[in-house]
Design a protein around this nucleic acid. Structure first.
Lengths: 188, 188
DNA sequence: GCGAATCGATACGCTGCCGTATGGTCTCCG
DNA sequence: CGGAGACCATACGGCAGCGTATCGATTCGC
Protein backbone atom coordinates (compact mmCIF):
# COMPACT_ATOMS: atom_id res chain seq x y z
CA UNK A 1 0.00 0.00 0.00
CA UNK A 2 2.53 2.55 1.12
CA UNK A 3 4.42 3.09 -2.07
CA UNK A 4 7.89 4.20 -1.19
CA UNK A 5 7.98 6.44 -4.19
CA UNK A 6 5.43 9.03 -5.24
CA UNK A 7 3.80 9.38 -8.61
CA UNK A 8 1.47 11.77 -10.38
CA UNK A 9 -1.52 10.26 -8.64
CA UNK A 10 -0.08 10.93 -5.20
CA UNK A 11 0.25 14.61 -6.02
CA UNK A 12 -3.18 14.77 -7.60
CA UNK A 13 -4.76 13.19 -4.57
CA UNK A 14 -3.07 15.63 -2.24
CA UNK A 15 -4.05 18.46 -4.53
CA UNK A 16 -7.73 17.51 -4.34
CA UNK A 17 -7.52 17.36 -0.57
CA UNK A 18 -6.05 20.83 -0.51
CA UNK A 19 -8.73 21.99 -2.92
CA UNK A 20 -11.46 20.60 -0.72
CA UNK A 21 -10.06 22.23 2.39
CA UNK A 22 -9.02 25.59 1.09
CA UNK A 23 -9.93 26.16 -2.52
CA UNK A 24 -7.64 26.43 -5.50
CA UNK A 25 -5.59 29.05 -3.78
CA UNK A 26 -4.47 26.40 -1.36
CA UNK A 27 -3.15 23.98 -3.91
CA UNK A 28 0.42 25.21 -3.82
CA UNK A 29 3.33 23.02 -4.57
CA UNK A 30 5.28 23.77 -1.42
CA UNK A 31 2.29 23.10 0.80
CA UNK A 32 1.55 19.84 -0.98
CA UNK A 33 5.19 18.87 -0.66
CA UNK A 34 5.08 19.46 3.06
CA UNK A 35 1.93 17.39 3.30
CA UNK A 36 3.53 14.55 1.34
CA UNK A 37 6.71 14.80 3.39
CA UNK A 38 8.91 15.47 0.41
CA UNK A 39 10.39 18.57 -1.14
CA UNK A 40 9.19 20.23 -4.26
CA UNK A 41 12.09 18.66 -6.12
CA UNK A 42 9.76 15.71 -6.36
CA UNK A 43 6.91 17.78 -7.71
CA UNK A 44 8.90 19.29 -10.50
CA UNK A 45 9.97 15.81 -11.48
CA UNK A 46 6.37 14.68 -12.03
CA UNK A 47 4.95 17.96 -13.31
CA UNK A 48 6.31 20.67 -15.49
CA UNK A 49 4.80 23.39 -13.31
CA UNK A 50 1.79 24.21 -11.15
CA UNK A 51 -0.26 24.90 -14.22
CA UNK A 52 0.11 21.32 -15.38
CA UNK A 53 -1.08 19.97 -12.04
CA UNK A 54 -4.09 22.22 -12.07
CA UNK A 55 -4.94 21.21 -15.61
CA UNK A 56 -4.69 17.56 -14.68
CA UNK A 57 -7.06 18.20 -11.80
CA UNK A 58 -9.63 19.69 -14.12
CA UNK A 59 -9.43 16.86 -16.61
CA UNK A 60 -9.49 14.18 -13.95
CA UNK A 61 -12.43 15.73 -12.19
CA UNK A 62 -14.39 16.11 -15.39
CA UNK A 63 -14.05 12.53 -16.57
CA UNK A 64 -14.56 11.16 -13.09
CA UNK A 65 -17.75 13.13 -12.48
CA UNK A 66 -19.22 12.32 -15.86
CA UNK A 67 -18.58 8.62 -15.36
CA UNK A 68 -20.06 8.88 -11.88
CA UNK A 69 -23.31 10.54 -12.88
CA UNK A 70 -23.83 8.09 -15.69
CA UNK A 71 -23.35 5.17 -13.33
CA UNK A 72 -25.52 6.75 -10.64
CA UNK A 73 -28.45 7.38 -12.95
CA UNK A 74 -28.30 4.03 -14.69
CA UNK A 75 -31.32 2.40 -13.12
CA UNK A 76 -30.75 -1.35 -12.97
CA UNK A 77 -34.16 -2.47 -11.85
CA UNK A 78 -34.72 0.76 -9.95
CA UNK A 79 -37.63 3.01 -10.73
CA UNK A 80 -36.85 6.58 -11.82
CA UNK A 81 -38.10 7.88 -8.48
CA UNK A 82 -35.80 5.52 -6.61
CA UNK A 83 -32.95 6.60 -8.83
CA UNK A 84 -33.58 10.24 -8.02
CA UNK A 85 -33.77 9.60 -4.32
CA UNK A 86 -30.54 7.66 -4.60
CA UNK A 87 -28.72 10.54 -6.27
CA UNK A 88 -30.13 12.91 -3.69
CA UNK A 89 -28.81 10.74 -0.91
CA UNK A 90 -25.36 10.64 -2.48
CA UNK A 91 -24.80 14.37 -2.49
CA UNK A 92 -27.22 15.61 0.08
CA UNK A 93 -26.95 15.23 3.78
CA UNK A 94 -23.64 15.11 5.50
CA UNK A 95 -22.51 11.96 3.81
CA UNK A 96 -19.60 12.55 1.52
CA UNK A 97 -18.42 15.87 2.93
CA UNK A 98 -15.26 15.66 0.88
CA UNK A 99 -17.23 15.29 -2.33
CA UNK A 100 -19.36 18.27 -1.47
CA UNK A 101 -16.33 20.31 -0.53
CA UNK A 102 -14.62 19.56 -3.83
CA UNK A 103 -17.81 20.32 -5.68
CA UNK A 104 -18.14 23.73 -4.04
CA UNK A 105 -14.47 24.55 -4.37
CA UNK A 106 -14.64 23.65 -8.03
CA UNK A 107 -17.54 26.03 -8.54
CA UNK A 108 -15.89 28.84 -6.70
CA UNK A 109 -12.87 28.26 -8.86
CA UNK A 110 -15.06 28.34 -11.96
CA UNK A 111 -16.34 31.76 -11.01
CA UNK A 112 -13.01 33.33 -11.83
CA UNK A 113 -11.21 30.90 -14.13
CA UNK A 114 -12.66 30.44 -17.63
CA UNK A 115 -10.97 27.07 -17.99
CA UNK A 116 -12.56 25.74 -14.81
CA UNK A 117 -15.83 27.34 -15.78
CA UNK A 118 -15.82 25.42 -19.04
CA UNK A 119 -15.17 22.13 -17.28
CA UNK A 120 -17.90 22.67 -14.72
CA UNK A 121 -20.30 23.61 -17.49
CA UNK A 122 -19.59 20.36 -19.31
CA UNK A 123 -20.16 18.31 -16.18
CA UNK A 124 -23.34 20.19 -15.32
CA UNK A 125 -24.68 19.73 -18.81
CA UNK A 126 -24.21 15.98 -18.52
CA UNK A 127 -25.73 15.88 -15.05
CA UNK A 128 -28.77 17.87 -16.06
CA UNK A 129 -29.22 15.58 -19.02
CA UNK A 130 -29.03 12.42 -16.91
CA UNK A 131 -31.34 13.71 -14.23
CA UNK A 132 -33.74 15.16 -16.76
CA UNK A 133 -34.05 11.70 -18.24
CA UNK A 134 -35.01 10.32 -14.86
CA UNK A 135 -37.69 12.95 -14.43
CA UNK A 136 -38.90 12.27 -17.95
CA UNK A 137 -39.15 8.64 -16.93
CA UNK A 138 -41.59 9.83 -14.30
CA UNK A 139 -43.91 11.00 -17.02
CA UNK A 140 -42.98 14.68 -17.25
CA UNK A 141 -42.66 16.39 -20.58
CA UNK A 142 -39.17 17.60 -21.57
CA UNK A 143 -39.54 21.16 -20.36
CA UNK A 144 -40.89 20.15 -16.99
CA UNK A 145 -38.28 17.43 -16.66
CA UNK A 146 -35.51 19.89 -17.33
CA UNK A 147 -36.94 22.39 -14.89
CA UNK A 148 -37.16 19.68 -12.25
CA UNK A 149 -33.57 18.68 -12.88
CA UNK A 150 -32.55 22.31 -12.63
CA UNK A 151 -34.33 22.63 -9.31
CA UNK A 152 -32.91 19.32 -8.16
CA UNK A 153 -29.30 20.27 -8.74
CA UNK A 154 -29.67 23.83 -7.56
CA UNK A 155 -30.98 22.46 -4.30
CA UNK A 156 -28.18 19.93 -3.93
CA UNK A 157 -25.45 22.51 -4.34
CA UNK A 158 -27.30 25.23 -2.52
CA UNK A 159 -27.77 22.99 0.44
CA UNK A 160 -24.01 22.70 0.80
CA UNK A 161 -23.84 26.48 0.94
CA UNK A 162 -26.50 27.05 3.54
CA UNK A 163 -25.14 27.40 7.04
CA UNK A 164 -26.50 24.65 9.22
CA UNK A 165 -26.59 26.27 12.62
CA UNK A 166 -27.52 24.03 15.47
CA UNK A 167 -30.88 22.23 15.55
CA UNK A 168 -29.68 19.42 13.31
CA UNK A 169 -32.92 17.46 13.69
CA UNK A 170 -34.85 20.40 12.35
CA UNK A 171 -32.73 20.48 9.22
CA UNK A 172 -32.97 16.74 8.92
CA UNK A 173 -36.72 16.92 8.88
CA UNK A 174 -36.65 19.80 6.42
CA UNK A 175 -34.37 17.86 4.11
CA UNK A 176 -36.82 14.95 4.11
CA UNK A 177 -39.69 17.22 3.22
CA UNK A 178 -37.58 18.79 0.47
CA UNK A 179 -37.00 15.33 -0.93
CA UNK A 180 -40.72 14.80 -1.21
CA UNK A 181 -41.15 18.07 -3.04
CA UNK A 182 -38.18 17.53 -5.33
CA UNK A 183 -39.08 14.06 -6.48
CA UNK A 184 -42.85 13.99 -6.56
CA UNK A 185 -44.68 10.82 -5.62
CA UNK A 186 -48.03 11.13 -7.25
CA UNK A 187 -46.93 12.29 -10.64
CA UNK A 188 -47.54 14.11 -12.97
CA UNK B 1 -19.34 63.09 -5.07
CA UNK B 2 -15.67 62.60 -5.63
CA UNK B 3 -14.31 62.97 -2.15
CA UNK B 4 -10.75 64.11 -2.40
CA UNK B 5 -9.86 62.15 0.66
CA UNK B 6 -10.57 58.53 1.39
CA UNK B 7 -12.19 57.10 4.46
CA UNK B 8 -13.01 53.71 5.90
CA UNK B 9 -16.04 53.38 3.66
CA UNK B 10 -13.97 53.85 0.53
CA UNK B 11 -11.75 50.96 1.50
CA UNK B 12 -14.67 48.81 2.52
CA UNK B 13 -16.41 49.41 -0.76
CA UNK B 14 -13.30 48.50 -2.72
CA UNK B 15 -12.85 45.48 -0.51
CA UNK B 16 -16.33 44.20 -1.30
CA UNK B 17 -15.71 44.66 -4.99
CA UNK B 18 -12.53 42.64 -4.71
CA UNK B 19 -14.40 40.02 -2.69
CA UNK B 20 -17.08 39.74 -5.33
CA UNK B 21 -14.58 39.38 -8.13
CA UNK B 22 -12.01 37.11 -6.58
CA UNK B 23 -12.95 35.92 -3.14
CA UNK B 24 -11.37 36.83 0.18
CA UNK B 25 -7.96 35.96 -1.12
CA UNK B 26 -8.20 38.90 -3.45
CA UNK B 27 -8.89 41.49 -0.80
CA UNK B 28 -5.28 42.48 -0.31
CA UNK B 29 -4.26 45.89 0.81
CA UNK B 30 -1.79 46.55 -1.96
CA UNK B 31 -4.28 45.56 -4.63
CA UNK B 32 -6.98 47.72 -3.10
CA UNK B 33 -4.52 50.58 -2.88
CA UNK B 34 -3.75 50.26 -6.57
CA UNK B 35 -7.44 50.19 -7.35
CA UNK B 36 -8.04 53.31 -5.26
CA UNK B 37 -5.02 55.02 -6.80
CA UNK B 38 -3.30 55.52 -3.50
CA UNK B 39 -0.57 53.69 -1.65
CA UNK B 40 -1.04 51.46 1.31
CA UNK B 41 0.17 54.26 3.53
CA UNK B 42 -3.42 55.41 3.38
CA UNK B 43 -4.77 52.01 4.30
CA UNK B 44 -2.72 51.71 7.43
CA UNK B 45 -3.99 55.06 8.49
CA UNK B 46 -7.62 53.95 8.42
CA UNK B 47 -7.09 50.39 9.55
CA UNK B 48 -4.76 48.77 12.00
CA UNK B 49 -4.13 45.83 9.69
CA UNK B 50 -5.78 43.63 7.11
CA UNK B 51 -7.54 41.71 9.85
CA UNK B 52 -9.40 44.80 10.94
CA UNK B 53 -10.65 45.46 7.42
CA UNK B 54 -11.84 41.91 7.06
CA UNK B 55 -13.61 42.05 10.39
CA UNK B 56 -15.32 45.28 9.38
CA UNK B 57 -16.47 43.59 6.20
CA UNK B 58 -18.05 40.77 8.16
CA UNK B 59 -19.87 43.08 10.52
CA UNK B 60 -21.04 45.39 7.78
CA UNK B 61 -22.30 42.54 5.66
CA UNK B 62 -24.13 40.98 8.56
CA UNK B 63 -26.07 44.04 9.62
CA UNK B 64 -26.74 45.05 6.05
CA UNK B 65 -28.11 41.66 5.05
CA UNK B 66 -30.27 41.32 8.13
CA UNK B 67 -31.77 44.74 7.57
CA UNK B 68 -32.33 43.88 3.94
CA UNK B 69 -34.15 40.61 4.51
CA UNK B 70 -36.38 42.19 7.10
CA UNK B 71 -37.33 44.97 4.70
CA UNK B 72 -37.79 42.59 1.80
CA UNK B 73 -40.14 40.29 3.66
CA UNK B 74 -42.19 43.04 5.25
CA UNK B 75 -45.31 42.74 3.18
CA UNK B 76 -46.99 46.13 2.96
CA UNK B 77 -50.19 45.18 1.30
CA UNK B 78 -48.56 42.30 -0.53
CA UNK B 79 -49.76 38.77 -0.08
CA UNK B 80 -47.24 36.24 1.26
CA UNK B 81 -47.01 34.60 -2.17
CA UNK B 82 -46.23 37.93 -3.77
CA UNK B 83 -43.64 38.55 -1.12
CA UNK B 84 -41.96 35.26 -1.85
CA UNK B 85 -41.93 35.86 -5.56
CA UNK B 86 -40.47 39.28 -4.89
CA UNK B 87 -37.60 37.86 -2.84
CA UNK B 88 -37.02 35.25 -5.49
CA UNK B 89 -36.78 37.91 -8.15
CA UNK B 90 -34.27 39.87 -6.10
CA UNK B 91 -31.68 37.14 -5.84
CA UNK B 92 -32.57 34.86 -8.69
CA UNK B 93 -32.03 35.53 -12.31
CA UNK B 94 -29.18 37.58 -13.53
CA UNK B 95 -30.31 40.73 -11.81
CA UNK B 96 -27.96 41.80 -9.10
CA UNK B 97 -24.88 39.84 -10.17
CA UNK B 98 -22.76 41.70 -7.68
CA UNK B 99 -25.01 40.71 -4.83
CA UNK B 100 -24.91 37.09 -5.88
CA UNK B 101 -21.15 37.21 -6.27
CA UNK B 102 -20.68 38.63 -2.79
CA UNK B 103 -23.09 36.08 -1.41
CA UNK B 104 -21.19 33.19 -2.92
CA UNK B 105 -17.80 34.58 -2.03
CA UNK B 106 -18.99 35.02 1.52
CA UNK B 107 -20.07 31.41 1.70
CA UNK B 108 -16.86 30.13 0.24
CA UNK B 109 -15.06 32.19 2.80
CA UNK B 110 -17.24 30.74 5.55
CA UNK B 111 -16.21 27.27 4.56
CA UNK B 112 -12.72 27.81 5.92
CA UNK B 113 -12.99 30.67 8.37
CA UNK B 114 -14.93 30.05 11.59
CA UNK B 115 -15.52 33.76 12.07
CA UNK B 116 -17.10 34.12 8.64
CA UNK B 117 -18.98 30.91 9.17
CA UNK B 118 -20.54 32.30 12.30
CA UNK B 119 -21.63 35.48 10.54
CA UNK B 120 -23.15 33.64 7.63
CA UNK B 121 -24.97 31.36 10.04
CA UNK B 122 -26.52 34.33 11.81
CA UNK B 123 -27.68 35.85 8.55
CA UNK B 124 -29.06 32.56 7.31
CA UNK B 125 -30.92 32.01 10.54
CA UNK B 126 -32.64 35.34 10.16
CA UNK B 127 -33.41 34.77 6.51
CA UNK B 128 -34.88 31.35 7.12
CA UNK B 129 -36.98 32.81 9.89
CA UNK B 130 -38.33 35.61 7.71
CA UNK B 131 -39.06 33.39 4.76
CA UNK B 132 -40.53 30.70 6.97
CA UNK B 133 -42.97 33.30 8.22
CA UNK B 134 -44.07 34.05 4.70
CA UNK B 135 -44.66 30.38 4.00
CA UNK B 136 -46.52 30.08 7.26
CA UNK B 137 -48.66 32.96 6.05
CA UNK B 138 -49.57 30.74 3.16
CA UNK B 139 -51.17 28.34 5.57
CA UNK B 140 -48.36 25.84 6.08
CA UNK B 141 -47.61 24.44 9.50
CA UNK B 142 -44.24 25.40 11.04
CA UNK B 143 -42.33 22.32 9.93
CA UNK B 144 -43.52 22.54 6.36
CA UNK B 145 -42.92 26.25 6.29
CA UNK B 146 -39.35 25.81 7.47
CA UNK B 147 -38.74 23.05 4.96
CA UNK B 148 -40.09 25.26 2.21
CA UNK B 149 -37.84 28.11 3.31
CA UNK B 150 -34.91 25.72 3.37
CA UNK B 151 -35.68 24.61 -0.16
CA UNK B 152 -36.26 28.18 -1.23
CA UNK B 153 -32.88 29.42 -0.09
CA UNK B 154 -30.98 26.36 -1.15
CA UNK B 155 -32.35 26.89 -4.62
CA UNK B 156 -31.46 30.55 -4.69
CA UNK B 157 -27.85 29.98 -3.77
CA UNK B 158 -27.53 26.77 -5.74
CA UNK B 159 -28.75 28.50 -8.84
CA UNK B 160 -25.84 30.87 -8.66
CA UNK B 161 -23.53 27.89 -8.58
CA UNK B 162 -24.97 26.02 -11.50
CA UNK B 163 -23.14 26.64 -14.73
CA UNK B 164 -25.49 28.23 -17.23
CA UNK B 165 -24.15 26.98 -20.52
CA UNK B 166 -25.77 28.44 -23.60
CA UNK B 167 -29.50 28.00 -24.25
CA UNK B 168 -30.47 30.89 -21.96
CA UNK B 169 -34.14 30.67 -22.91
CA UNK B 170 -34.22 27.10 -21.72
CA UNK B 171 -32.91 28.11 -18.32
CA UNK B 172 -35.27 31.04 -18.26
CA UNK B 173 -38.23 28.74 -18.73
CA UNK B 174 -36.89 26.32 -16.16
CA UNK B 175 -36.51 29.10 -13.64
CA UNK B 176 -40.12 30.10 -14.13
CA UNK B 177 -41.28 26.56 -13.56
CA UNK B 178 -39.08 26.36 -10.47
CA UNK B 179 -40.79 29.47 -9.17
CA UNK B 180 -44.14 27.77 -9.44
CA UNK B 181 -42.88 24.75 -7.55
CA UNK B 182 -41.13 26.79 -4.89
CA UNK B 183 -44.01 29.08 -4.02
CA UNK B 184 -47.11 26.95 -4.51
CA UNK B 185 -50.25 28.55 -5.86
CA UNK B 186 -53.03 26.30 -4.74
CA UNK B 187 -52.00 25.87 -1.15
CA UNK B 188 -51.81 23.92 1.13
C1' DG C 1 -1.21 82.67 10.72
C1' DC C 2 0.41 78.72 13.12
C1' DG C 3 0.47 74.48 15.42
C1' DA C 4 -1.71 70.13 15.35
C1' DA C 5 -4.28 66.71 13.42
C1' DT C 6 -5.40 64.28 9.18
C1' DC C 7 -4.11 61.80 5.24
C1' DG C 8 -0.92 59.81 2.16
C1' DA C 9 3.97 58.74 -0.15
C1' DT C 10 8.39 56.38 0.07
C1' DA C 11 11.34 53.05 1.54
C1' DC C 12 12.56 49.06 4.12
C1' DG C 13 12.60 44.09 6.09
C1' DC C 14 10.32 39.79 6.25
C1' DT C 15 7.84 35.76 4.68
C1' DG C 16 5.78 32.49 1.47
C1' DC C 17 5.55 30.92 -2.93
C1' DC C 18 7.22 29.71 -7.86
C1' DG C 19 10.50 27.87 -10.79
C1' DT C 20 15.50 26.37 -11.90
C1' DA C 21 19.83 24.22 -11.37
C1' DT C 22 22.48 20.87 -9.72
C1' DG C 23 23.79 17.23 -6.98
C1' DG C 24 22.83 12.88 -4.36
C1' DT C 25 20.91 8.16 -3.72
C1' DC C 26 18.63 4.32 -4.84
C1' DT C 27 17.27 0.43 -8.30
C1' DC C 28 17.37 -2.17 -12.24
C1' DC C 29 19.57 -4.26 -15.95
C1' DG C 30 23.12 -6.01 -18.84
C1' DC D 1 30.18 -4.54 -11.17
C1' DG D 2 29.01 -0.37 -13.33
C1' DG D 3 26.38 2.78 -15.82
C1' DA D 4 21.78 4.79 -16.67
C1' DG D 5 17.69 6.45 -15.34
C1' DA D 6 14.12 7.37 -11.78
C1' DC D 7 13.29 9.98 -7.85
C1' DC D 8 14.20 13.35 -4.48
C1' DA D 9 17.13 16.97 -1.61
C1' DT D 10 19.45 21.37 -1.41
C1' DA D 11 20.20 25.80 -2.66
C1' DC D 12 19.32 29.81 -5.19
C1' DG D 13 16.92 34.01 -7.55
C1' DG D 14 12.78 36.45 -8.03
C1' DC D 15 8.31 38.30 -6.99
C1' DA D 16 4.24 39.67 -4.31
C1' DG D 17 2.17 40.65 -0.24
C1' DC D 18 2.14 42.30 4.91
C1' DG D 19 3.39 45.46 8.21
C1' DT D 20 6.51 49.37 10.06
C1' DA D 21 8.81 53.66 10.09
C1' DT D 22 9.45 58.04 8.66
C1' DC D 23 8.63 61.97 6.19
C1' DG D 24 5.71 65.29 3.21
C1' DA D 25 1.43 67.84 2.31
C1' DT D 26 -3.05 69.65 3.26
C1' DT D 27 -6.62 71.24 6.39
C1' DC D 28 -8.73 72.83 10.55
C1' DG D 29 -9.12 75.00 15.17
C1' DC D 30 -8.03 78.89 17.64
Amino acid sequence: MEAKTLNRESWLSAAFSALAEGGVEQVRVELLAKRLKVTKGSFYWHFRDRMELVEAMLEGWKTGRIEAIKAQTRLDGRTPAEGLRYVLSLYGGSNNPRGIAIELAMRDWARRDPRASEIVAEVDRERLRCVSDLFAGLGLDPDDAFARAYLFYSFIFGEGLLARSAAPDRFEKARDLCGKVLVPEGVV
